[in-house]
Design a protein around this nucleic acid. Structure first.
Lengths: 92, 92
DNA sequence: TTATCATTTAGACAGATTTCGAAATGAGAG
DNA sequence: CTCTCATTTCGAAATCTGTCTAAATGATAA
């Protein structure tokens, strides 16, 4: 759940696409996986990277595991970028 | 200069540290390199990744090459994150 | 229990990434 | 032109990453 983990997680296009898919609500691993042309195991791996980075949370409901977007961690990213933009010249 | 290149470039801690160093103005490759405990060739490689991603620009002035932060590309990142945060439920 | 469905974990592999030292390039100074 | 300094490019080694198939786990249904 470190800063580095978050950036690393976002550096893969499949993982960013997963986050996009989760924009409008929680979905099961299967629903997410069906959107990609790759093995379910691979998508499962990407989901675990996103989970360890704190970008999604998972919730088992019976047979299914629902994944949901966790936006709060994204604020760190925005904050870091703002830091670069903000104090650009001669503050203090 | 693609979206993917930008995220990839930001996924390395050394490269993010370089951007931080450049926050308060342009610096030469040597000045940047002296802040890290790694070969100059390695830092030069990181600088080229940042340049290809459009995150920095370089400017040769005599013997030295000055690198400068290019903030405009960072807006893409902020924009993408805002997209995830924003339209979270039932728009349209 | 056994069968089946949803998903993850394990192990392996190819390709990408980070890093280095050494050689090459660019540019001013003598 | 030659020397030196700043930086990059080259080529290679070690490590990391994304992907696959096959096997394991969790949960429900019969």
């Amino acid at each position: 759940m470190s800063f580095q983990e978050t950036f690393k997680a976002l550096s893969d296009p499949t993982r960013r696409a997963i986050l996009d898919i989760l924009k409008d609500g929680a979905k099961t691993a299967g629903e997410i996986g069906s959107q990609f042309d790759m093995a379910g195991a691979t998508v499962s791996h990407h989901l675990s990277v996103l989970r360890e980075a704190g970008l999604v949370s998972d919730d088992r409901r019976g047979k299914y595991i629902y994944y949901e977007l966790n936006v709060s961690v994204l604020d760190q990213i925005t904050g870091w970028v703002a830091g670069l933009r903000g104090e650009k010249r001669h503050e203090k």
